[in-house]
Amino acid sequence: MTATSPTPRKKYDLNFARWVYENVDGGDRMAKCMQCGTCSGSCPIGDQMDYGPRKLFMMIRAGMKEAVLTSNTIWNCVSCYNCVVRCPRQVPVTYILHDLAALAVKEGYAEAKTADNARFAKAFWWSAQKWGRTDERLVTMKYYFSTGIGDGIKKGMANQKIAMAMVKTKRMHLTMPHKVKGTKELQAILAKAHEIEERGNNGQ
């Protein structure tokens, strides 16, 4: 992905749409979207999205970059792939949403820092990178406390019962996580993947 996407001068300026077609993973296939609504209708949390993928794609064509990259739709995708398997035009909706989310991060949109899913993703990434695995307790804590200490304690208290039940059934551990074998190598792999992604999207 190139550093920045162009800012449209006006609505239905194709600058942004063309950039998305060319730079976002699966964007070229998004061009064939016929606005049938299968994706938004298939989404298990479609009613918790401000626009849903179908409308979001139309907004991309309409050059509504600001609204697209600040939308919660790109963050709320749970990667169930219902939309991808059903889309009659075979648009890889999930990839596109995730890549748009990455773009929002890259371009520094405030929503990319504050959106629940963005914060959760960061906590997840932190754990995965550090130990090579996700640790339920630490990821949750990091996520809870990402909006401030007071907020974190409040959320923790509210979910105390669930946490205790998870500990009891050994779904969550109070000890520190064990690192996977070869954590160093894993970290190197992830770094390389990141590098390839950057390069790949620069047209190489």
Partner: peptide, 26 residues
């Protein structure tokens, strides 16, 4: 709208599910 799915609901009544593209209603 192209319905996303049709699922047998309670009592076997078919439920048509999707997004109305003109109203954004699910």
């Amino acid at each position: 709208s192209k319905p996303a799915s049709i699922v047998p609901g309670p009592d076997g009544v078919p439920l048509v599910c999707g997004e109305n593209t003109l109203t954004r209603e699910i």
